[in-house]
Simulated scan of single mutants.
Amino acid sequence: MHTENKTLIHRIHDLAQPLLESQGLELVLADLVTEDGRRILRLLLDKPGGITLDDCARFAKEFGYLLDIHINIPGQYTLEVSSPGINRPLVQPRDFERFAGETIRLRTHTARDGQRNFRGELLGITEDQVNIKLAEKTVAIPYGEIHSARLCRD
């Protein structure tokens, strides 16, 4: 992601936080992407017990107004608010603790012992190391080395 987009996403996150808290929601991931020539501001939300379509619609309506007033996003874009789905991305360190015991898929930036893709049981995070139990061994991957991680429920 370009520095300009990172700064914009950071501003969007800061603007969203009070509204998220007031509605009992959590921002899992915010991303500004281009798909089929369209720009999409995608927000994935969650809450304990799971998020509903009504939660997403209510947040999108209120947050859309805040965006229009407080942040100038260049060009046309579509605001898309949804649940993270069953294969929820793991983004923050707290996610790796919260979902300990679940099966995950994790990809690293660089190869570790010739491997970049891992699938196993998430054991948690300790001292900035994500611990995964693979079939043959347990690995500790530095949090900063993670390219992407998702729950694997399918």
Rank of each mutant, 00 (worst) to 15 (best):
K61A: 06
R112F: 03
Q115G: 01
A57Q: 10
T34H: 08
L25V: 04
S22V: 02
D36S: 14
F59D: 07
G124I: 04
L134P: 01
I9L: 15
L32W: 11
V33C: 06
V33N: 09
S83R: 11
L15K: 09
G101D: 06
S22Q: 15
Y65M: 07
I51N: 01
G101Q: 08
A57I: 09
R38H: 12
L90K: 11
D31E: 15
I73F: 06
L32G: 02
E80I: 01
L123R: 15
L45Y: 02
L19P: 03
L41R: 05
P142D: 03
D14S: 14
L151K: 13
V28F: 03
G24K: 12
C152R: 12
P74E: 15
K47I: 04
E102F: 10
L122M: 10
T108M: 09
G75S: 13
R39I: 00
S83N: 10
A149D: 00
G144I: 00
S82P: 02
M1S: 13
G120A: 08
E145P: 00
L45G: 00
R11A: 12
L106T: 01
K61L: 11
V28N: 11
L15D: 04
S148N: 10
R150T: 06
R38D: 11
R39F: 02
T7A: 14
Q92T: 10
P18A: 09
F118V: 02
I69S: 07
G114H: 11
I86K: 08
R119I: 11
I146N: 05
P84M: 08
D31C: 06
T34N: 11
I132Q: 02
F96G: 01
T103H: 10
T138Q: 13
G120L: 08
D68C: 00
T138D: 08
Q17D: 14
A140H: 13
Q23P: 01
L32N: 07
E62C: 01
L106W: 02
A30R: 07
D31F: 00
T126Y: 05
R119S: 14
Q129Y: 08
A100H: 04
S148F: 07
R107Q: 13
L41K: 03
K133F: 01
K137H: 07
T110Q: 15
S82G: 14
L134C: 05
E136R: 14
T7P: 00
T110W: 03
L15V: 03
R11F: 03
Y77P: 04
L123E: 13
T110D: 09
A57V: 10
I125P: 00
T103N: 09
G64E: 07
C152S: 15
D95G: 04
R150F: 12
A140Y: 02
L43S: 00
H109Q: 11
D68G: 05
L66T: 01
L79F: 04
L19M: 15
E80K: 12
